[in-house]
Simulated scan of single mutants.
Amino acid sequence: VFADGGYAGEKLRAALVGNGNWTIEIIKRSDAAEGFELLPRRWVVERTFAWLGRCRRLAKDWEASIESSTAWINIASIRVMTRRLATYCLVS
Rank of each mutant, 00 (worst) to 15 (best):
T48C: 13
V80F: 02
E46H: 08
N74Q: 06
E34Y: 07
C55K: 13
E67T: 06
M81S: 12
L58A: 08
R83M: 03
V80L: 11
A50D: 04
E67S: 08
G35L: 10
R83D: 01
A8R: 15
I27V: 13
D31V: 04
A15E: 14
R84I: 14
G35W: 01
A8D: 13
A50K: 10
K60P: 01
L38Q: 11
W43T: 10
R57I: 06
P40R: 04
D31G: 04
D61R: 10
L16I: 03
C89G: 01
S65L: 00
L58R: 04
N74Y: 10
S92N: 08
L52V: 09
G20C: 03
W72H: 13
F2S: 01
I78A: 11
V91T: 10
T23C: 06
R84Y: 12
I66V: 06
R83E: 00
R47Y: 07
A50S: 15
G20P: 05
R57K: 12
A15W: 14
R42E: 05
V80N: 00
W22Y: 05
S92R: 10
G9T: 14
S69P: 00
I73T: 02
F2K: 02
K60A: 08
T70R: 05
T23F: 04
E46C: 06
A59Y: 05
V17A: 09
G53L: 07
A32V: 15
W72A: 02
F2I: 09
R47H: 12
F36H: 11
N74F: 12
A76L: 02
E46Q: 11
L12G: 12
A76M: 06
W62H: 03
S69Y: 09
T48P: 01
F2E: 02
L16D: 03
N21K: 10
R54F: 04
L12P: 15
T82P: 00
E25F: 05
D61M: 00
D4V: 02
N74R: 06
F49W: 08
K60R: 15
